[in-house]
Amino acid sequence: MQLWQDAMPLMKEHHHPPQVPLPCLLLSLLAAFTGVLLVPVSGLFFAFPCRWLAQNGEWAFPIVTGLPLFVLTFSSLVFLNFSDPDILHQGSNAQGPRMVCVVWVNHIAFRLQWGPQYCFHRPPRTYQCPWCNICVEDLEHHCKCVNNSIGQCNLGFFMLLVLSLCLSSGAMLVTSVVFLVRTTHLPLGMDRLLGSILVTVPPGGFLVPLLVLLLMKARSVSTAQRSYEDKYQYLQGYHPLDLGCAGNWYWTLCAALGPKYIAEAVRMQRAEGPDWVPRRSSTS
């Protein structure tokens, strides 16, 4: 008895999104601030500690931190800002709200709920992001730093961004400490002040939270958990959507790479649905 009760209530519905959507500009301010913060900090870093070390023959620091890490961080940040998660568009209203719809995944039943706005039974882990105002498949969370929903399609890039930020912060911190140590005999001038303290503080402050975030997300991906979902007690620890650690990582990093959703939806319906017949309506 307990088995089925534990298996069913998989939908988390107690999130309270804002009733009045905030203006687009207001939501984008934090994302703009994140991008703006990255530019001057990196500029100061490359202009002072890296320049000092490079002019004294330490080319490894600017080479490592410049091209791979900064480019990787900035490009993943830009991509995550403007990439689309898996957005589910409106259904064809073929089934109706009174149709009982249950999805079985690895012998566990998910009782699906009808969404009147999108005209289909909502698949497991599919939620309406209240900030982006879209329905996202496999919603992980809404990242306010990039003002975008993180779903299955861009969760890998979110992990890449956090990882690259950790590596960049660590490299900047190490470079700045090396610069400080080697210039201890110099007076505290403009270069030393700007090039060391201003560059050392942000990476030092962000490094620990970023590392904690990276570890938490890595654990979530490994165990197929999602932040937007309750941590239900499944069947004695059995998680129906868990493919194993390697499978979960493969699902997160590789399953999202493919064509856009709409073309993919039509192709998949045709491939797996021998009984599917396109319905041609007279309405236009």
Partner: peptide
Amino acid sequence: GAFTYSPLLYWINKRQQYGMNAAINTG
């Protein structure tokens, strides 16, 4: 009316491609 599509079917098929045993029951 160019076509109809089922997000559930897409969801199921996508997971079946990656080894999940998934199916739909409707009533």
